[in-house]
Each structure stands twice: as C-alpha cells, then as structure tokens.
Design a protein around this nucleic acid. Structure first.
Lengths: 240, 240
DNA sequence: TGGGATTTGTCCGTATGTATG
DNA sequence: GCATACATACGGACAAATCCC
C-alpha cells in the first residue's frame, strides 16, 4: 500500500490540523503498529511542508505520551503507548503538592487498595499456581531483606504486578503499576520507609489468603498490607 | 526569596540532568504553584545555558504532561497537572488498536463500572441532595434528547462527574472523567450510538437507587447502566 | 576493525504572529 | 494605533550517535 499522508485541512471549512495531529493521522492512516519505523524528520518536514524544528517539537510532544519513540542517530518508531507520561505527571504532582497536603498520597493508596480488592474474587477463583509460586519466592526475599534492614522495591513491584496479572484486564494492570511507581517516588520525599518487616510479612499473608481460597480472606489480607503504609503517612503528616 | 536555579549536575559523579528535569527542579525548588508564571524562554535559555531550541523542545514535553502551560505571546505558567496527557495517550491507543481487538474498550468499560461501584456505599451514605437534584435534572434532559433521537454527551459526562464527586477522592474523579473522554472518543470510531433511550433511562434508575438508600440497589443500577453500552460494543465486534 | 552514510541532537540568527498596556 | 514583550516559526550549520558494509 502506498504511503498515506494526511492533508493539513481534514475537511474544507475547518481549521487546519496541528502538526501533532497530522503525525497521529499519519500513523492511523497507514495502520502502523508499535515498533514500526516512522519517516525521518527530514522526510516529515518535506511531506508536511513545515520546518524540521516544528517536526522536532511535535515529536517531543508525541514522545512524552509514548506515541512515538525516538532513538538518537537511528530513527523514530511508533511507541508502545505505555502510561509513562501518566507516571511522570502524577509523580510531579505528588512532589509539588505533598508539602501542602497529604490528600494526594492518601487518595493514591486508597485507589491502589480498592483496585486490588476489586479483583480478589477473580484471583482466588483462577488461582494461578505458577504466579503464586513466584510471588511466594518474592515474599521470602522481601522478608530476608527486611531482616537486614534493607528495602525491597523491585520485589514489591513485581509482587503486585503478579497479583493483578490474573485479572485479565491489561489496563488495570498497567494503571496499578503506574500507581506503584508514583507512590514509590512520592513516598521517598516524605522520609525513610518504616514497618519494613511488617510490610514484608504482609505479602506472605496475601499468598496464604489466596491459597485458602477465600475472597474475603484475601480482601482482609490486602487491607492489612496497606495499613502500615497508611500509618507511615500519618506519622510524616504529624511530623510537619 | 531569591530565585533558585538547579545545577546541571545534581550531585558530583552523577550524569547531568536533562533540561526537562532541570526545569522541573526549578519549579520544585522555588515552590511554585499551578498558575504561577515561569521565566521566559530567553531567560531559561540564559540561566540553564542551553539554546532556545532546547528550551522550547523541553517545554513541549512539559506542556504535553500539563506541567507547564504556554500562552502564545503572553508567557509560560505552571500547569494544572491535569490528566489531559493520559486522555490523549489512551484515546490514541484506543483508535490504533480498536481495529485489531476490542479488549481495550472492554477493559475501559469494566474499569469505569468497577470504580463507580466501589464508591456506591459511600454515595448512598452521604446522599448529597444538591448533587442529586442536579443529576435528576440532567437525567430528565437526557431522556428528552433521546426521545428526539439526539445524543447527550455533555449531560452524561456531567452526570458521572457528579456521581463520584461525593467520594472525596479527587484522583478517582479525575481518572473516571478521563476514562469517560477516552470511551467517548473511541466509541465514535466504532459507529453510531445505540440504545439511546435505554441509556438515558438508566440514569434515572441510578438516582432512584441512591434515594432508596440501598448500596446494593445502586450497584445493580450502575451495572444495568453499562449493559447497553457493552451490548453496543459486542454488536460492532460482530459486524467486523 | 574501520569508515562512510544516515539520522537525531544542538545551536544560532532572523523574521513573524500575538497578547498586553 | 503604537510600542513592548513574548512565543512561534524557519533555514542552515555542525555535533553526536547509530548502523551497516
């Protein structure tokens, strides 16, 4: 199929499309998929009849949203449409507002807990033994690290990814991962972590609950998991 | 307080910060709030010792995430940290993938339903009569418009905003609004709406349920509200 | 291993459009 | 209407990174 180029005016009588929109149109018109190569900046500049500076600025906008991915000296490609932009935006909001109020972090924790609890019935029903074994190993590592007074961000993140992986809803998995990242970044700014051992143990309890086959037990275990985290937040709020 | 400028090297030995990060640092260091004016591009160019082109490209990245807001011929300001970037990114993903699979839209609907149901107990408990009256008026308008065969996007969006407004969780409200926008945009691409009257009536049923004071009734009403929407999706999937 | 070709990154100078007062 | 300040846009030049032969 020949390359399709969007016109500056989508329909006569309407205002001309922005460069960003025309590049998005280009991707849609040519049915490109994540990873597919985009034209060079020079070619886009020619085809859309705008300077390379404008193309570059449009690309910056698009890469911030992970609609395209730019590789220095190599080329530009259709992005993976991940939610990295959301993570950056939320993390910045958290850092900017965490001085004034703690609402943001509290809302974030509530949302994480709520979404995980939503999937509790499905998780116990499907009971993915492979994932469960991996989660058990991660929990053990976390307890070990906690005993040494060390943190365990990598293990914690992976644990929660696995927990929701059985949901079948890719979107909620990605969102929860973003929330995890934002939480992790913002929490750093309010001081060192507390309740390390308690939090690590809470992950074992979550697996126990899943194996028990009771959705209610899992819900309770998830709630208990988030309690020390809320407690830490309350303390830092009081310390201000 | 004198203006604080972030150094290119945060700590000796580490790699230098990107221009985007240095501008974010500038905002954090000077404790700026949404709406506060940013330095001009020329001044940023001087202070950060990089060309105006780089400043502009960085600004494009930051404005895509609504970290700054640029007003042509006037100035640049700290942005409102809204989730417009997420909406754009998700909407594009939906349009790009809706040809191949319907998972995305289905996941999105599930997520909207789930989050609204999560707040059902709180909504019936607090029972904001003002919001309820406004919602009732909106529902009536929706039914009128549906009877004329017309759509009612504005009313629908506002209705759902009001529904979750009593949750007290600002984040979930903003997220749901983004999901509404994305849903609306992506749904357009799969054809004209169906079940107009049924959907309009479903909103009346939601208010009835809230007034009944039963969280279970509200949950059921919300589920019924999303049923015709899922049905429309299934039909379009079958039509491919 | 190396070197040339391609592509993105950075910078500069200048001109134009737009909002404020 | 005018002057000023600011963002928008363009074109050209060179640097840096990557790939491929």
């Amino acid at each position: 199929m020949a390359t399709q180029w969007p016109a500056a005016e989508d329909r006569t009588g309407r205002e001309p499309l922005s460069v960003v929109d025309r590049i998005k149109q280009y991707i849609l018109l040519n049915r490109l998929s994540p990873g597919d190569p985009m034209p060079t900046e020079h070619e886009l500049s020619d085809q859309l009849a705008v300077s390379r500076s404008r193309i570059r600025e449009a690309m910056k906008t698009l890469s911030a949203l992970d609609i395209v991915e730019v590789r220095h000296g190599y080329g530009t490609f259709v992005g993976t449409l991940s939610l990295t932009g959301l993570a950056e935006s939320l993390a910045f909001r958290g850092m900017l507002t965490s001085h004034r109020d703690k609402h943001f972090l509290a809302d974030l924790i509530d949302l994480r807990e709520l979404l995980e609890i939503d999937w509790a019935p499905l998780i116990v029903e499907r009971l993915d033994t492979e994932a469960l074994a991996a989660m058990r190993a991660l929990a053990t590592t976390m307890v070990d690290l906690a005993a040494q007074g060390r943190e365990f961000p990598v293990e914690d993140r992976q644990f929660h990814q696995l927990l929701v992986s059985t949901s079948g809803n890719a979107l909620v998995g990605q969102l929860l991962d973003v929330f995890w990242q934002v939480h992790s970044l913002v929490a750093e700014t309010i001081g060192p972590p507390t309740h390390l051992e308690e939090t690590a143990q809470a992950h074992h309890a979550i697996i126990d609950a899943i194996e028990s086959g009771s959705a209610e037990a899992l819900e309770a275990a998830i709630r208990r998991h988030y309690e020390p985290i809320r407690e830490r937040m309350r303390r830092s709020a009081g310390a201000d």
